[in-house]
Computed example of a mutant assay.
Amino acid sequence: MADTYTVSRTLVVDAPPERVHAQLADFHRWAAWSPWEDVDPALERSYEGAGSGVGAVYRWSGNRRAGRGRMEITESRPPALVRVDLTFEKPFKAHNDTWFEVVPEGAGSRVTWTMTGRLTVVTRLMGLFSSMDKFLGPDFEKGLQRLKTVSESAAA
């Protein structure tokens, strides 16, 4: 069995790469499209560091489903890439590398969201019932669809 997992999803967005990248590189904008923002209506959020791009930090703490963790943008190459260092503290500890690639496609953008991580005891146990791809993939699809809606409706 592999020691790591990778989850990746892609969606075409009818918005230019610069507009999509702006949504990804600013954690303040994630509430409008992240698939996990609505799992806890009382979710506590805090922002540190840069306002957007490299050095921007987002922390969250919520109910059992939302958990607690931290994200930091470690690389931002407008309009093509945003890389995020993701650490989960609760409900279990995990460290993941997450990135968004934005590639021009016609008048729009092809956005690919990828996350890799090491399989822990908890994720291995989860894997007995479902793969990480099946577990997280639908959330990525939901988030990309929301990102599409937000990016397509955002003012040029």
Rank of each mutant, 00 (worst) to 15 (best):
D3W: 10
T4K: 13
Y5R: 02
Y5M: 05
T6A: 03
V7H: 04
S8L: 00
S8A: 14
T10R: 13
L11V: 13
L11F: 01
V12H: 13
A15V: 09
A15K: 07
P17W: 07
E18Y: 01
R19H: 02
V20H: 10
H21P: 01
A22Y: 01
A22K: 09
Q23L: 12
Q23E: 14
L24I: 11
D26N: 14
F27E: 05
R29S: 12
R29H: 11
S34E: 09
S34N: 12
P35A: 03
W36E: 03
W36A: 03
E37D: 13
E37P: 02
D38S: 15
V39W: 11
E44W: 02
E44S: 12
S46E: 15
S46H: 03
Y47T: 01
Y47W: 12
A50N: 08
G51E: 14
S52L: 07
G53D: 10
G53F: 11
V54M: 06
G55W: 06
A56K: 08
A56V: 07
Y58N: 09
W60G: 03
G62D: 08
R64A: 15
R65G: 02
A66Q: 00
G67T: 09
R68S: 14
R68E: 15
M71V: 09
E72D: 05
E72T: 14
I73Y: 05
E75D: 14
P78K: 06
P79H: 09
L81N: 08
L81R: 14
L81Q: 11
T87G: 00
K90D: 13
P91S: 10
F92H: 11
N96D: 00
N96T: 08
D97Q: 10
D97K: 08
T98V: 15
W99G: 04
F100D: 03
F100E: 08
E101P: 00
E101S: 14
V102Y: 01
V102I: 15
E105D: 15
R110H: 06
V111P: 04
M115G: 01
G117S: 04
G117N: 04
R118N: 12
R118T: 13
L119H: 15
L119T: 07
V121F: 13
V121E: 08
V122F: 14
T123P: 04
T123I: 09
T123V: 06
R124V: 07
R124K: 15
R124E: 04
L125H: 00
L128I: 09
L128S: 00
F129K: 13
F129H: 10
F129C: 04
F129R: 14
S130I: 11
S130C: 11
S131N: 06
S131L: 05
G137A: 07
G137H: 06
G137Q: 07
G137K: 06
P138I: 12
D139V: 00
E141R: 09
K142I: 01
Q145N: 12
R146A: 15
L147F: 07
K148D: 02
K148T: 11
T149K: 13
E152N: 11
A154D: 14
A154H: 09
A154R: 13
A156Y: 06
